[in-house]
Amino acid sequence: MAFLEIANLRKSFPSPEGGELPVVEVKEFTMQAGDQLALRGTSGSGKTTFLHLIAGILKPDAGAIHIDGECISEFHEARRDLMRANSIGYVFQSFNLLQGYTCLENLLLPMAFAGEANQERAEELLEQVGLDHRMGHYPRQLSIGQQQRVAVARALVNEPKLVLADEPTGNLDPSSAAQALELLRKLCVDTKAALLLVSHDQALVDSFDQNLDWRDLNAAFEQATGTS
C-alpha cells in the first residue's frame, strides 16, 4: 500500500446560487513515503481544499484518504487533530505564523499539541534554518524570507511523515523563493518526510521530478474554476 492513498475523493461547497458546487473530485492519487511531488494549478481550482482534506482540516463528502495505512477520512475530529499534529506539517503561502508568539514559541506550540514540547529540538531546527539568533523575536520583527523559514521549521518540528506546502514561495522574491524551496526540500529529505507541494508557478512545479497538473487530477476542475 502506498504511503498516501486517495480514492474517489469528493468535496463540494454550497454554491451562492444555491445547490452544491463540486470543488474536488479525485478518483485516485498516491504518493510513496519520502516522495516529493508538485501539483500545478490555477488559483481557485481547489488545490488548497485538496490539501485541507489530506490534512484532516476538512472532511470529504465521499471517498477515502489513507495515510500510512490509516483511513483518516473515517477519523472523528479530535483524532484528525491529533493525526495532524503528529504526522502532518503544513506550510502556507502567507506563512500563518502566530503573531503574538516568538519564533521559538511558534515551534513549541505544535509540539505541545502533539504531546510535549521539546525546546532543544525546536532550537536545533531554528539553527538549521539559520535563525538561531532570532528565537526570541516575534514574526513582525523578521523579514518575509525569515518568516517563511520559521514556517518551514515549524512544519517539520514534529518530524511529520507528510509535509503539505500551499504556494510556499508565493509571497517571496525569486531569490528568497529559491532558497526557501531548497531548504524545505532538503529538510524533508533529512527527516524522510514526503512533500506534496501545490503552486500555480509552472517553473517551480517543473523543478520537481514528480509533478502533475491539477487539471488532470481533479475531475471537478472545470466546475470549480468556472472554465469549460
Binding site: 482540516i57 487533530d81 502566530l98 502533539a114
Partner: peptide, 16 residues
C-alpha cells in the same frame, strides 16, 4: 479568528 484557525491547523483540538 485567524489565530484560532492557525492553532487548529497545527493540531490544536477544538476543545483546547
Amino acid at each position: 479568528r485567524r489565530e484560532i484557525a492557525i492553532l487548529r491547523s497545527l493540531g490544536a483540538r477544538r476543545a483546547t
